[in-house]
Each structure stands twice: as structure tokens, then as C-alpha cells.
């Protein structure tokens, strides 16, 4: 093996700055995409459980569509194809004037894709609540909306904290696909450092360590959420 080690390169100008800026993009893209994914995913997931064929059908179609096309293809469709398919004025705006096009496109593509996965978790959470509880809430006089608002949603969101944590982590990992449309996020920056310095090992190690750090922070935060929201007297957690 013939390799020139140089860990110091990671702390030299401009490479340290590249890593920091890459981390910044990775975190900001991921957080924005997660907000999109969470809001739309929750709506679609709830939509799949309602007693209306049209709504639940449309929501199921959404999930199937976004889940069965690779994220990279979706990203390219949003970035390259959609601006050509919309009316000229809008297309022109998307290509020329939309602020931070790579960032915005990634947030939309990653957000809508992840929404389909969040929706599945939300639906599974709601479905896992015993039917009798829903009946009891209705018998108690709650309306359909109130049953969702006060009973089904609060319980199912507590149930699905662990799978949502894993989806949240996946968003950070999937944000690396943004490099294919030219967003210099963390993975792209480490690749660029590798290209400039030939110190690939150091560059990829730096990115790997940062991703692990992100995973640890997210897992830690979500564990706090899990303990805080645990229902006393259930599954041995809480008071």
C-alpha cells in the first residue's frame, strides 16, 4: 500500500472551510426537507386512514408513486424536467430567478419523497391503535375530527417516535444526493478535498466522522423526545 498520510490537510485553508460549509448545507437542507416531509407525511398518513374512498385513494397513490421511484430520479425530474413542463413564465422563473435553485429543489424533492415514508409510519401508528379505543372515543361523544385530534394522533405520534427517528436520520444521509445537481454539501466537499489533495482517506474520514456525529446528536435528541412523551404505565418507560 502506497499512501501519503496527511491529516493536517483537513485543518488547512481552504479545506476546513469547505467541510464546515458542507456541513452547513447538509444540516440546512435536511432540516428544511424534514419540515416538508413531516407536515405533508402527517397529512397523507392521516388521509390514508379516513373513511372516504377518494381521499384515502389519493393518499395511497401519493405514497406508492413517491416510494417506488428512486430519489435520484425524482431529484432529476424536479430539477431538469419540471421547469420544462410548467408554463413558460413559471419555467423561466424556476430556471433563472428562483433563489438557490439546487437547495430549493433538493428540499422539495427530498421532502416530498420522505413524506411518503413518514406517511406510512403515521398510517401504521394510527392502525396499530386498537379499534375499541376509537369506538370508545366516539361513544364518549367526540366527533370524528376530535377523535383524531385528541386520541388517535397524540397516541400514534408517541408510538412512532422510534421509526420517525430512523426516517429523520435517513434524511441527513439522503441529502447527499444533492451533490448530483451541484449542491456542495458534506459528501461533495469531502470528494472535492480528495480530488484537490489526493488525501482521500482523510477527507472521507472527516465526512464519515461528521455524519456519525450528526447521527449521535439526532438519536440523542429523539431519545429525549421519546422519554418526554412516554405514556406512564406503558412499556415500562416513564413514571
Amino acid at each position: 500500500m502506497n499512501y501519503n498520510w496527511n491529516w493536517a490537510v483537513l485543518f488547512q485553508d481552504p479545506y476546513l472551510g469547505w467541510l464546515i460549509s458542507g456541513l452547513g448545507w447538509t444540516v440546512s437542507v435536511s432540516l428544511c426537507a424534514w419540515v416538508v416531509a413531516f407536515v405533508i407525511g402527517a397529512l397523507i398518513g392521516v388521509g390514508r386512514t379516513v373513511n372516504n374512498r377518494l381521499i384515502s385513494g389519493l393518499c395511497t397513490a401519493y405514497v406508492e408513486l413517491f416510494r417506488n421511484v428512486p430519489l435520484l430520479v425524482q431529484l432529476f425530474v424536479w430539477y431538469f424536467a419540471i421547469p420544462e413542463m410548467v408554463p413558460d413564465g413559471v419555467g423561466h422563473w424556476m430556471k433563472r430567478e428562483m433563489p438557490m435553485p439546487e437547495f430549493t429543489t433538493t428540499v422539495i424533492a427530498l421532502g416530498l419523497y420522505t413524506a411518503s415514508r413518514v406517511a406510512e409510519q403515521v398510517r401504521a401508528g394510527i392502525d396499530s391503535i386498537p379499534k375499541g379505543l376509537k369506538a370508545a372515543a366516539k361513544a364518549n361523544g367526540l366527533s370524528g375530527t376530535q377523535v383524531y385530534r385528541y386520541i388517535l394522533l397524540p397516541i400514534s405520534f408517541r408510538i412512532i417516535v422510534p421509526p420517525l427517528t430512523s426516517e429523520f436520520l435517513t434524511v441527513f444521509k439522503n441529502s447527499s444526493l444533492a451533490l448530483t445537481i451541484g449542491l456542495l454539501e458534506l459528501t461533495a466537499q469531502s470528494q472535492q478535498i480528495a480530488d484537490y489533495t489526493y488525501n482521500s482517506f482523510e477527507a472521507f474520514t472527516a465526512a464519515t466522522v461528521i455524519y456519525i456525529f450528526i447521527a449521535l446528536v439526532v438519536t440523542g435528541l429523539m431519545q429525549i423526545v421519546e422519554t418526554r412523551t412516554a405514556i406512564p404505565g406503558q412499556s415500562g418507560k416513564g413514571a
Partner: peptide, 11 residues
């Protein structure tokens, strides 16, 4: 499981 597949491919 904590790193992106693209980074693994690069590695």
C-alpha cells in the same frame, strides 16, 4: 448505517 450510501461508494 450512519453514513450515506454515496459516501460508502466513494470510500
Amino acid at each position: 448505517r450512519s453514513v450515506p450510501l454515496i459516501l460508502v461508494i466513494f470510500w
